[in-house]
Structure formats: structure tokens, C-alpha cells
Design a protein around this nucleic acid. Sequence first.
DNA 1: ACTAAAACCGACCGATGGTCGAAAAAGGAG
DNA 2: CTCCTTTTTCGACCATCGGTCGGTTTTAGT
Lengths: 196, 196
Amino acid sequence: MKKGEKRKLELLQIAYRMFITRGYENTSVDEIIEEAGIAKGTYYYYFESKEAMLEDVISMMIEKEEEKAKAFLEADVPIPQKLVGIVASFRPTNEEQTIGDALNRPENILMHDKTTKMLIEKITPLFSKVVESGIEEGIFECDNIPERVRMILILSDALFDGNGCSQNDVIVFIDLIEKLLGAKKGTMDFIKELIR
Amino acid sequence: MKKGEKRKLELLQIAYRMFITRGYENTSVDEIIEEAGIAKGTYYYYFESKEAMLEDVISMMIEKEEEKAKAFLEADVPIPQKLVGIVASFRPTNEEQTIGDALNRPENILMHDKTTKMLIEKITPLFSKVVESGIEEGIFECDNIPERVRMILILSDALFDGNGCSQNDVIVFIDLIEKLLGAKKGTMDFIKELIR
DNA sequence: ACTAAAACCGACCGATGGTCGAAAAAGGAG
DNA sequence: CTCCTTTTTCGACCATCGGTCGGTTTTAGT
């Protein structure tokens, strides 16, 4: 029971690295097993298919990020910053930039799509909780919170993915968040400083 | 010069039909050439690759829809309805439903992605023009029009694609459009009737 | 030591997108 | 019509890829 799990994790990490650097479509199963030093049969002993492995890799990726996001939930910062922090946890800006780059390469649409969907599913409840507490504090005022949150997340993904966005995009995006959540104008202005 | 173009168009139409019914990934070049009754070499005489052909097919699709949308631009209907009409021109709801269905099948992400990007690029200027005339009429009031329009389009694509959306999604979406464009509350309520 | 289950192996397979050199058609020009 | 060039067509062939399968080795429990 132990050995198997370890090997699977090892394969997952190798695949993760290769998917990021060479892209999902450009990485063949043959290359993965060569890098891992195992036979084809072994690979398919652990994964039903290449795509199934991709899903596992993405899950692994996201679990890590989710913990970071949850930490933000309990941090002692103003609510608007909390929101941005949660989103930022999932959208790597530091040395992990390569992930974001990889996801936006045209050959990785499948990976990007799966990641985005999983991500939005994971973040929405966290984000919604923060918005709720914001409403209690009187910072926000709105109904249908999860729906509003989802739209914000969809847009943040579409806007800030790869092909940078204009200053005007940011301005409108901030305006949109404030209006969507019923916040006072300027509440989210600090975002402007964070993006560039 | 004539024969070649005709043959290319013929192949494009065959491919279009097959991509829609069987999906892009599920349609092999072999199947296309069999249906067309030509040899492999001939196919690659007209198209650099299967993916290049996909782009041609999509361009063809979109050109058709764009004309419908332009007709709406000059139609004699209220501005809010004009907006919806333009978007609707591109999002088939009638007998062409199959297109929308096909685009949302998981195996067609590539096609869907390419279509969406091309579509948004095409619609944004048309949509923006209508919003501008809406501002002149005092119905809307906002700046950064193209950016706002793009966000609306991105969301309409993400929300109304395949996996139906809840009633709340629609309510929030309407609220969002009105606030983004600076319209009076209720201006866009008629959308509720159109979606189902 | 025996055995069942877990882990591993690699030859093999069908399908796919794509290549290539050569053969037909088509189209002038003399 | 003939000769030559250009366009179009052909189909055998190829490399690669994801995936299968029957069998072997390792591991672990009794």
C-alpha cells in the first residue's frame, strides 16, 4: 500500500514538471516513462490514461494553492485585501510564473481549461465566505453572492491570463467588482497597485 | 485559379459538417478525404495541417454570423434589443443549435477556444458602436466602452455555454450589464424572457 | 516455504497526422 | 498538334502516439 502511493506521487511530480516545461500535448507518455525509468505497463498500472493523469496533476497543483488561500481566510487583514489575497494564491506571480506561462501556451488549452474550472470551483466558496463577512461589516451589499463571485473569478481569469491587460482593463475591472458587490467607490482601488 | 478555390471551399464545407456532427478531435483527416473522395496528398495540397484547416472552417463560420450581426446594427429596434440581437447572431439558438452543442463538447475545447476568441474580436467593435449610440441617446453612461463590452462578452460566453445557467445567474448578469454600462435599473430586464 | 496480491515489464497494436516523389490534368505559346 | 510549364492529384509510406496484454518479478502475509 505504501510503495504504490509513493511511486504514483513520483510519477505525478515528474509529469507536473514536464507538463509545465514542455507542455501537456508536447509531452508523450514515452517521454514520461523514460524520465521515470519505468515501463509502459507500469505507467498504465497507475493511471487509466494520459488525460486521467493530467487531472491528478492538476488536483495536486490546486490542493497546494488552496491551502495558501485558506491561510488568507484567517489572516488579520482588511476584507478587500483578503479577497485579493485569495485570488492571488491561485494565480502565481513569483518564481512560479512558469506555471502561468505554461497554462497560457496555445498547446495547453486542455490543461488550462481543466485548471480554470477546478480553480473556480474551489475558490468560489472561500471567496463567498469573505464577501459575506464583508456584508456583515457593511463594506459590501449584495445578494446572490456565489453567482457574483463566480463572475468575478471568470473575468479575473480571462483578463489576467498571459497576454497582459491594459490599464483600462484594470480600471473597469475594479469598477465592476465594486458595483457587483455593492461596495463604495474606491474600496478596491488598491488593486491598481498590485497589477503590472 | 478557379478549380482550386472551389475544391478548397468544398473541403471546408465537408469538414465543417463533420466537425460539428462528430467533433474536431473525433474527425480524422482520413475520414475527411474519404468523404470528399480525394487522396491524402490532395488534402495537404490545400491545407498546411489539420489545425490550419480548423481555423479556416471557423473563419468561414464567423463571417456568416458577422453579416447577420451587421444587419442588426442597422435595424430599427430599441438599442438594448440591438445589443442582445448582435450577441444572439453569434450564439445560435435555432436549428443551428448543433453548433453550440458541438462547441461545448469536451473533445472540442480547441475549436471552442479558437471560435470564442475570434468571435469576441469580431463582436466587440460592433457592440461598442451600439453602446456609443446608446450613450448619445442617454440610455447608457460610461467610459472605456470596448473594455466593458469585452467583459460582457466574455461572461456571456462563459455563462451561457452548454451547461445551462441558473435563474440567479441571469439576474446577476442583467444587473451587471446595467451597472457596467451605466443604464437605469430594468433597462435590460427583457433578457430574462429570452433565456431558457 | 508457500501463496496470493501488488508492482512491473516491454513487445505489440491500431490509429493518426503528415511527407514525398511521381503521375495526371490543365493551360498556354509556337 | 506539340512541347513545355504549372497546377492538381495520387497513394504508398512514415514516425509518433496513446494504449493493451500476457507474463514475470517483488512484496507481504501466514
